[in-house]
């Protein structure tokens, strides 16, 4: 089967391409530079109509059977209009292009659990707009993009949501923003991190390689696939555990401090936040020091079976990789320079 992967040179896109190739499918990769890691490469732009592809290139895609959309920016502090335009306009363009390709029978749209923002109560796959508020424009962009994908009627769309994805990959692809890795520079310098309940709540982290396989399965499986499904590591590692694993390669024990809870002791919480900010944790990351929404455990049931198992030690292996390649982590003052 011929599969078009949009955003193929990203962290997740790399594993989608790898999984598809391994399963014997032909992959056409669209990225800004047109690099190909697993199949044929095309240079395109998701913010342009027709993904910026010419008529000849589009004609060559006429036998594409499935489209995977896994482009995006996970930079929480990026310019809001750029973020929203990228995700919303990009999703529209991907769907328009897919609807215009005669052979396409399915689009897989990659969403995020962060599209649920600060949703209250138990949330399942069905829910999207639940009166939630958002921490940042990234969450809002993901919410809007998923809303666009859910409204699509010209071509079947399967939506898959992920939490923070971790795990080894070519070092340059591991994003240092938009997840627990963002706290790493602070923790490695011995600074304390104030977390609600000391970080003993799940962050719905998952193995990026498994996420790639889930997407590949959704794109290529014959017959019905779920309209919306969610993947995360069923072991539900807590934020505290994830941070411990990430710090292990440096032989550092993260100093996680139990902080005030949302809604209670507002002045205390405010003081804690001010203190954390002074210690160098960015304002964007600070929003994630409280638990994510409660997910219905049944959300995993809709995943196409069998779901591959996570690679052992994938959490600490991510940090191993960053340490061994001496990839520079975000400096402490990155937040200041961003603003």
């Amino acid at each position: 089967m011929k599969v078009l992967v949009i955003g193929s040179t990203g962290y997740l896109g790399h594993w989608v391409g790898a999984s598809l190739t391994e399963a014997g499918h032909q992959v056409v990769e669209v990225s800004r530079r047109g690099h190909a890691r697993h199949g044929t490469g095309l240079a395109g732009d998701v913010t342009a109509t027709g993904l910026g592809l010419g008529p000849k290139e589009l004609a060559e895609l006429s036998d594409v059977a499935a489209v995977v959309s896994c482009f995006g920016s996970v930079d929480w502090d990026a310019d809001p209009s750029r973020l929203v335009n990228l995700h919303v306009t990009g999703t529209r363009n991907v769907l328009d292009t897919a609807a215009g390709l005669p052979g396409v029978r399915r689009v897989v749209h990659t969403s995020s659990l962060l599209a649920l923002g600060r949703a209250e109560g138990l949330v399942g796959n069905r829910e999207l707009a639940v009166g939630q508020s958002f921490r940042n424009w990234y969450e809002y962009a993901k919410y809007r993009a998923e809303a666009v994908a859910r409204r699509e009627s010209r071509v079947p769309v399967s939506i898959v949501r992920f939490g923070p994805l971790l795990g080894p990959a070519p070092a340059g692809l591991v994003p240092r923003t938009g997840g627990p890795l963002q706290a790493l520079p602070t923790l490695l310098q011995g600074m304390p991190l104030i977390l609600e309940r000391g970080g003993r709540y799940p962050v719905y982290a998952g193995d990026v390689a498994v996420a790639g396989q889930v997407i590949a399965e959704l794109a290529t499986r014959p017959g019905e696939v779920p309209e919306v499904c969610t993947y995360f590591d069923p072991a539900r590692p807590t934020l505290a555990r994830v941070l411990h694993e990430l710090c292990r390669p440096w032989n550092v024990v993260p100093r996680l401090v139990e902080g005030g809870t949302r809604g209670g002791g507002r002045p205390v919480r405010w003081l804690q936040r001010q203190a954390a900010r002074r210690l160098g944790l960015g304002a964007g990351a600070l929003e994630y020091t409280s638990p994510l929404p409660d997910l219905d455990p049944a959300v995993l049931d809709t995943l196409p079976r069998p779901v591959p198992a996570e690679r052992p030690g994938y959490l600490s292996a991510t940090a191993d990789l960053l340490r061994d390649t001496r990839r520079v982590l975000l400096p402490v003052d990155a937040e200041v320079s961003h603003r």
């Binding site: 600060r118 707009a129 939630q132 508020s133 958002f134 809002y140 919410y143 809007r144 809303a147 409204r151």
Partner: peptide
């Protein structure tokens, strides 16, 4: 027409 998304204004309130 169609279902109304959460508007940017509403999104901004929570931020």
């Amino acid at each position: 027409g169609g279902p109304a998304d959460v508007s940017p204004r509403e999104a901004l309130i929570g931020m």
